[in-house]
Simulated scan of single mutants.
Amino acid sequence: MEEELLDWEENTHNLLFWKHMICGSCAGVVEHSISFPFDTIKTFAQAESTKMITFSDTAKLVRKEGILRMWHGVSTVICGCVPAHAAYFSIYEFSKSHFDIQSNSQYYLWSTAITGALASTSHDIILNPMDVVKQRVQLNRIKGPFKMMLEIIKTEGFFSLYRSLLITILMNWPNAALFMTFYENLKSHFFSDGKVTMLGYFSCAGISSALAAGLTTPLDVIKTRLQTQNEESPLYKNKGFGMDKKDKRKLRYKSIYDTAKLIYLEDGALGFVKGIVPRMLFFLPGAAVSWSVYEYTKRLISKY
């Protein structure tokens, strides 16, 4: 079946815009559903109100609330990732065609970096509000996504949903640029004949995503602090980790600079790499599965 699909590779470049959107949506749903537990661990590790930094802490969380706790809030991100990934992959295909990026013996730098940054920007603008809600829901399992969104808007204002948009874009520009550069060049290096297998897509995407995620972890820590500073996790509020009630609605992190400064003063340089392992583990299978599903779905649509 794989060989038959690969015979149609040249036709996938001519797919209509809406077909790329369908493929991208499918890829996004599968990606986040599979890798969401690692994202939950990462959020707990980086949030100020939890300080859950070891895998033993994760085991305690699972024993206390069940394995499904690791997927709490997944519906929120799925609702946002459908349109966000549709935009991401559509712009990726357009830019790739514009810059004539192909899987051959040629190596790319600026064209792949620009392609990744453009695709990432469209994705972040759509997904960022839902990502804020998702991280709050991950920390506080008592509240559902819709209730959480209404509470955030009521207590902090509608702008709070976009408070971390700038750091998200600044973080994902280098992350997406690095990923796309690694990804396209790995394909060119290992599949110089242009015949990329599904295992090739899986491996190249996973390795590229893990490397890019690790290098951009400091920015992700800042983003998480900005997004979750007012959310106290019920799991830790009686263990001295939570914030005082009088400080519940007081913003400690008002800008990227203030957040970085406080992290360094309180946690030192190592504070910027908290959650790096679960972050890499989250992105590795997520990207590997996402891009494999995307390419496989393209071939199915192209053939049938």
Score class of each variant (00 low, 15 high):
H85T: 11
I169S: 00
G66S: 06
V133F: 00
A205W: 03
S160H: 09
S233P: 12
G286S: 04
S255D: 08
L251W: 11
K248R: 12
K245P: 01
H13E: 15
M171Y: 09
Q138I: 02
K51G: 10
L211G: 09
D258T: 15
D247F: 05
L15D: 03
A176M: 06
A210K: 06
N128P: 02
Y201C: 11
D39R: 12
V196C: 07
G240L: 05
L170T: 10
I207Q: 06
T115M: 10
I78N: 01
S192N: 10
A269V: 07
L5W: 02
L199Q: 09
K134H: 10
F99Q: 05
A86I: 03
A213E: 07
F17N: 07
E295W: 00
I301T: 05
S105V: 07
I101R: 08
L219C: 03
W110L: 15
H20W: 15
L139F: 01
F182C: 14
C23M: 07
Y257I: 15
F36E: 06
D220E: 10
N11M: 13
C81M: 10
Y183V: 13
K303M: 13
D193M: 04
L284I: 13
V30W: 11
N230S: 14
P278F: 04
H32Y: 15
C23I: 00
Y162T: 04
P129I: 00
H98F: 15
T217Y: 07
M198S: 14
D258Q: 13
T50V: 12
Y162R: 02
L211R: 11
S90Y: 12
F55D: 04
R69M: 02
Y162G: 00
E2A: 10
G275T: 01
Q102S: 08
L15Q: 05
L139V: 06
T121Q: 03
F36V: 11
I22G: 06
S49G: 10
S25L: 05
F44D: 14
R163Y: 02
C81I: 15
L15Y: 04
Y107P: 04
S188D: 03
T121F: 15
D220V: 13
Y201D: 15
C81F: 09
C26G: 08
I169V: 04
I301F: 04
V277D: 07
G286C: 06
D267L: 14
G271T: 02
N230E: 12
K195E: 07
H85P: 02
L127K: 00
F38M: 02
I41K: 05
D267I: 08
L178W: 03
L215K: 08
S302L: 09
F44N: 15
T121R: 03
L6A: 13
D39E: 15
I152Q: 00
A260W: 11
L211A: 15
L165K: 01
G206P: 09
F182I: 12
L5C: 04
F89T: 05
G73I: 01
F36I: 08
T50D: 04
Y253D: 07
L281M: 08
N238W: 10
F94I: 15
F179R: 02
I114Y: 05
A84Q: 00
D247W: 09
S111H: 08
R252K: 15
K51I: 09
K42Y: 06
P174C: 03
C79V: 14
L161K: 00
L68T: 13
R279T: 00
S188H: 02
Y88K: 01
F94H: 12
E231P: 06
A288V: 13
P129Q: 00
I256S: 07
L178C: 06
A87W: 10
